[in-house]
């Protein structure tokens, strides 16, 4: 969590490998591997997943073809055989049910003409299909009505296993009513300035960020 401009989306983008960012210092180690030198696709193949704040529309690319290509390239990277059409469809059906996404959306071009909520739901569906080890949800709650929020949150909860982790970037406690965090970290000016458990989120909801900013600014100066 953190106030506007604190660097939450920047962190998510840097981790996923967005090329507009230049890393001037520091390192990122993911499951024992330095990922900063890896291309975005290789980070994904290592098990990283970014659910976009604003998923882009790609007219003409079918969700089906897109997901199958992604899944099989990830599998290849990991030395696994590609999924054939039948197994792939079976997996799609299973995951669609899990995250409650409509077949109609999957039949369309990737995100084309999707509402804000549908785009976010599609992000969670992709996450379900690709089974990342670490998922970063970048303000997945923004622009969602309460029903969509519940469905998205429920999808995230169902996907949680002992083998994976999820970083949820959010401004609001609201999402955390549905996704209960194990840890809450507060980012400010690009640094984690406070960490706690779920009660920290509640405290922020009540008191805002000013006290954290004052604390942090005091510490820095």
């Amino acid at each position: 969590m953190g106030p506007n401009g604190s660097g939450k989306s920047t962190l998510a983008s840097v981790l996923a490998g967005r090329e507009e960012y230049e890393i001037t210092e520091g390192e990122v180690e993911f499951l024992g591997k330095d990922i900063l030198d890896l291309a975005p696709e290789d980070r994904a193949r290592e098990g990283l997943f970014l659910a976009f704040q604003y998923p882009v529309e790609i007219p003409g690319v079918s969700s089906n073809n897109f997901l199958r290509t992604a899944l099989n390239q990830i599998r290849k990277y990991r030395g696994m055989d590609p999924l054939d059409a039948v197994s792939f469809l079976k997996l799609m059906k299973e995951k669609m049910a899990l995250v409650e996404i409509d077949q109609k959306l999957i039949n369309r071009s990737l995100n084309e003409g999707f509402s804000g909520g549908e785009k976010k739901r599609n992000e969670i569906f992709q996450m379900a299909m690709l089974e990342p080890k670490l998922a970063i949800l970048d303000e997945t709650d923004s622009g969602l009505d309460i029903d969509a929020l519940r469905i998205v949150a429920s999808g995230v909860n169902k996907l949680k296993t002992g083998e994976n982790a999820t970083i949820v970037v959010t401004h609001y406690q609201r999402l955390l009513d549905y996704i209960v965090p194990d840890f809450v970290h507060v980012l400010y000016n690009g640094r984690i300035v406070k960490s706690g458990d779920k009660s920290l989120a509640l405290e922020l909801e009540e008191k805002g960020y000013d006290w954290i900013k004052a604390d942090a600014d005091g510490v820095v100066s």
């Binding site: 696709e41 690319v61 897109f66």
Partner: peptide, 20 residues
Amino acid sequence: FYLRSRGISKASARAMLLHA
């Protein structure tokens, strides 16, 4: 970037977009 962030190689992503 969106396609690549899902594990699709640069070359495949390029081909997908050109076909589209």
